[in-house]
């Protein structure tokens, strides 16, 4: 499957609050509260304001975390990006 490019929600749209093992993400646009765990917040942070595909996000995350082999990391990030898109937290470019 093609590695689709997404853009993360602008930072002022989100209120991100760590709460114990969970992270709450309140989206001001939808007024929805998303309760997520790692690596969702890390993926959003790594994307910044750029259009990113899974390969780009995995590369950025690898610089900060140990993600194991590159192919596995990219596949994992790709799955998470689809979930983030369903929540509306990233949008296909």
């Amino acid at each position: 499957m093609a590695d689709r490019t997404y853009r993360a929600a602008p930072p002022d749209a989100l209120c991100v609050e760590p709460l114990g093992d969970l992270t709450l993400i309140f989206d001001r646009r939808s007024t929805q509260t998303h309760i997520v765990v790692s690596p969702m917040p890390e993926i959003l942070a790594a994307m910044g304001a750029d259009g990113c595909n899974a390969a780009a996000v995995a590369a950025r995350l690898a610089a900060a975390f140990d993600l194991g082999d590159a192919d596995g990391a990219q596949a994992l990030v790709a799955e998470r990006l689809v979930e983030l898109a369903e929540l509306g937290l990233v949008a296909p470019v």
């Binding site: 001001r28 646009r29 929805q32 898109a85 509306g88 949008a91 296909p92």
Partner: peptide, 15 residues
């Protein structure tokens, strides 16, 4: 709040 939610539905349909 309700209008933000309604407009968000429009945004999700657009996506």
């Amino acid at each position: 709040v309700a209008q933000a939610q309604a407009l968000w539905e429009a945004e999700m349909a657009r996506r």
